[in-house]
Design a protein around this nucleic acid. Structure first.
Length: 448
RNA sequence: GGAGAGGUGGCUGAGUGGUUGAAAGCACCGCACUCGAAAUGCGGCAUACGGGCAACCGUAUCGGGGGUUCGAAUCCCUCCCUCUCCGCCA
């Protein structure tokens, strides 16, 4: 959520940032004049309503004084004056509310402003590579894709999944199911034992306000799954009710519950940065992804992910972003997976982000790097939406916190990466050293 | 699902219609005392929005929304949330 004052303080800078996101001058100018008009209307409505309230309050006090002084005549006269005033007040207050809501609706739909160092670009082909770590292994045979490996092992079953749930689901069995669990446990242990994150087991079903806070709502409603009580839904319709059903949202990422832990809080500066991690299933409708990554488990309706969230002061945010990215990279380093880090350009960045690093893992079966983590710094964009603040040690007024989130890392895709990078010519998969303690000491997954 | 009790400032917690934005305590900040500290004393200490160069002024906020009233933290309606007991349940 943007602050209209900040925008109006420097309209030219705001316009430039909007254009960096989407280079459409006509749209940018239309947006700005709309915002200015809405804000002027808001101020105007507030002033009118407040002037009326001020007169009413003053008259009410006079009535109280007159009644104490037993001056019934004066009290009655004042009452008549207030009664007249009230006829217009209701409308003025309604106008004030509407004007504020109209501005907020508009502001809530504007993406965050990219930081100056974020390169301008249209899509992922414009993302500069920041660094490349690890050498892709040379195979003495043509490396297979993960689903070929998993299916050949008899431990990855898409047909069974589709019978139960349809497309974009996977059934893992035996050692592959355990490998997924091992990966998640390994990542959580790394972040809690070595990176200073506190493990959280959050709700997976959340309310509208939480989804608004992290900015999945209102704009990305169609990407989400919802859960509802059919009994309540039936009563809802039977009662002839209209509008939105009461329901939960399935979290598309643990970023939502973790970040919203700071909702409507005033944190103590000495507790910042607040670092939290969670391993959860994530649910996505993938509405706009028809036909993309249809084979295998790269793009699923349900997948496991270990998420990191940091709540910081504005001053800490940028360093924390580098630190968080390094924490995600450490997962891949310890797993021995080659990867590269790219800086997302303005056109490829998420709605709430000011700056994002994507970590892409090497997949020999696909012969390319694929996203396995995304680390974003959001500034106060989410904090404003959820009222998350902190009290600075040396100042009395609370300030909005800054929020960061990053995958540390996507467990499903990590499983894919392990299968492809550790595959052997005979179809078996070597278990990476760091995972063996989590696999009961097993060093190789073979066909059962 | 049934019955009941509640939601007040950073925290605890008073307050049932008229200078109550809100007692008191805790926490925090400043000053005094002290070599320093503790203890003690005095003072300060909510948030947002609008107006103003500023000092400051105004408006709103006692879970959210609506209503009654000249006037609501206090009365009514509604929604949300929390807790207790019973029922059901992993």
């Amino acid at each position: 959520m943007h602050d209209i004052k900040t925008i109006r303080d420097d309209l030219a800078a705001f316009r430039a940032d909007i254009l960096r996101r989407k280079p459409d001058e006509a749209a940018a100018d239309a947006l700005i004049s709309k915002l200015v008009a809405l804000d002027d209307a808001r101020k105007n409505a507030i002033q009118k309503a407040q002037a009326a309230q001020e007169r009413r309050n003053a008259a009410s006090k006079e009535i109280g004084a007159a009644m104490k002084a037993k001056d019934a005549g004066l009290a009655e006269k004042l009452k008549a004056e207030v009664a007249e005033l009230k006829e217009t007040m209701g409308a003025l207050e309604a106008q004030e509310r509407e004007a504020i809501a109209a501005l907020e609706t508009e502001l809530a739909a504007i993406p965050n402003r990219p930081l100056p160092e974020v390169p301008f670009g249209a899509d992922e082909s414009d993302n500069p590579e920041v660094r490349r770590v690890g050498e892709p292994k040379k195979f003495g045979f043509k490396p297979k894709e993960h689903f070929e490996i998993g299916e050949a092992l008899g431990l990855m079953d898409f047909e069974a999944a589709s019978k139960i749930s349809g497309a974009r689901f996977t059934v893992l069995r035996g050692k592959l199911a355990r490998l997924e669990r091992a990966l998640e446990a390994f990542m959580l242990d790394l972040h809690t034992d070595h990176h200073g994150y506190t493990e959280v087991a959050p709700p997976l079903l959340v309310r509208d306000q939480a989804m608004f806070g992290t900015a999945q709502l209102p704009k990305f409603r169609d990407d989400q799954f919802a859960a509802l009580s059919l009994v309540e839904a039936e009563q809802h319709f039977a009662g002839g009710a209209t509008g939105e059903l009461d329901h939960f949202w399935l979290i598309p990422t643990a970023e939502v519950p973790l970040t919203n832990l700071a909702r409507e809080q005033i944190l103590d500066e000495k507790n910042l940065p607040l670092r939290m991690t969670a391993g959860t299933p994530c649910f996505r409708a993938e509405a706009g992804a028809a036909g993309r990554d249809t084979r295998g488990m790269i793009r699923q309706h349900q997948f496991a992910k270990v998420e990191m969230v940091s709540i910081t002061t504005p001053e800490q945010a940028i360093d924390e972003h580098e630190r968080m990215t390094a924490c995600a990279e450490e997962v891949l380093k310890r797993l021995g997976l080659p990867y590269r880090v790219v800086l997302l350009c303005t056109g490829d960045m998420g709605f709430a982000s000011q700056k994002t690093y994507d970590i892409e893992v090497w997949l020999p079966g696909q012969d390319r790097y694929r996203e396995i983590s995304s680390c974003s710094v959001c500034g106060d964009f989410q904090a404003r939406r959820m009222g998350a603040r902190y009290r600075p040690a040396d100042a009395k007024n609370p300030r909005f916190v800054h929020t960061l989130n990053g995958s540390g890392v996507a467990v499903g895709r990590a499983l894919v990466a392990v299968l492809e990078n550790y595959q052997n010519e005979d179809g078996s998969v070597t278990v990476p050293e760091v995972l063996r303690p989590y696999m009961g000491g097993l060093d190789k997954i073979e066909k059962a």
